[in-house]
């Protein structure tokens, strides 16, 4: 069984602020981190490695420093990885990114499709949740999104539980598949120090547009029909009413009740 996990490096948005005058991101002092939602997919893959000996390959697309994403996955136990990186990929929207990643995955699997491709549910910078589904289209492989749990039977069939707005859904199928994984799927493991030491020395394959045989007009800015017209911060929400009832719970409860009554939410 071969599992490919796609991960992304993103700016730590807890620290990102928007310059109110120019509406551009102020990235000063902002670290790059692994997209938090992408922590769970590799854990799911590593569990398949533990349970059925799957080979785990990690792929990320980004600038050279994004290689650290792959090293971290190797430190945790992934078998190999590749960095998809080239100036020609710059400015890619979700369509061009999906295309490029699907070409890279094909390349890494010798022209075939792997048994399973895993993604996080979305990235915290764009929040589109489109690249996983896009890759499934380009690979022509069935898609399951918002996976909460994944079981694999001995005969290679899978059974997954996905989370919907109004409930849960159980999906059964046969590989190959592309899945996007939720936080609930698995608590990520820590990388042992010895694992990091090996990962730090590992040579990481870099795939550019030639290596993945990409059509030049379908990658980077040229291959991106999405145009960002403007970026603006959402309106600042006013602070709520603060009820300080430290040391007097009864007073606090009464204040909350009065507040809800005033809003007409309780009688």
């Amino acid at each position: 069984m071969h599992v490919v996990v796609c991960m992304k490096q993103v700016p730590d948005t807890t620290n990102v602020r928007i310059n109110p005058e120019t509406n551009t991101l102020m990235r000063e002092g902002v670290e790059s981190i692994i997209n938090p939602f992408d922590e769970y997919a590799p854990e799911e893959a590593l569990r398949l490695k533990d349970s059925c000996g799957a080979r785990v390959t990690v792929v990320t697309m980004g600038p050279p420093q994004a290689a650290v994403v792959i090293r971290e996955a190797l430190a945790r136990g992934a078998d190999d990885g590749a960095l998809v990186s080239s100036r020609a990929f710059g400015g890619a929207d979700t369509l061009a990114t999906s295309y490029t990643l699907s070409m890279a995955i094909r390349k890494l699997c010798g022209g075939k499709t792997p048994d399973l491709v895993l993604f996080g549910k979305q990235a915290i910078d764009g929040d589109t949740a489109q690249v996983g589904p896009g890759v499934s289209e380009f690979l022509e492989v069935p898609l399951v999104t918002y996976v909460k749990s994944l079981e694999v039977a001995a005969d290679g069939a899978y059974r997954v539980t996905t989370v919907m707005d109004d409930g849960e859904q159980v999906v059964e199928g046969r590989f190959p598949a592309v899945m996007t994984v939720l936080k609930e799927a698995a608590v990520p493991r820590f990388a042992p120090l010895a694992g990091w030491m090996a990962a730090a020395k590992a040579k990481i394959e870099v795939l550019d547009e030639k290596a993945v045989d990409a059509d030049p007009i379908r990658i980077g800015l040229k291959g991106s029909p999405t145009k960002v017209v403007t970026i603006f911060p959402p309106p600042v929400k006013g602070g709520g009413e603060k009820i300080d009832a430290r040391g007097d719970g009864e007073k606090g409860a009464k204040a909350i009740a009065a507040f809800l009554q005033k809003k007409g939410l309780v009688k």
Partner: peptide
């Protein structure tokens, strides 16, 4: 120990 327990090295 939780499921992601990592021993001392």
């Amino acid at each position: 120990r939780k499921s992601n327990y990592l021993p001392s090295e």
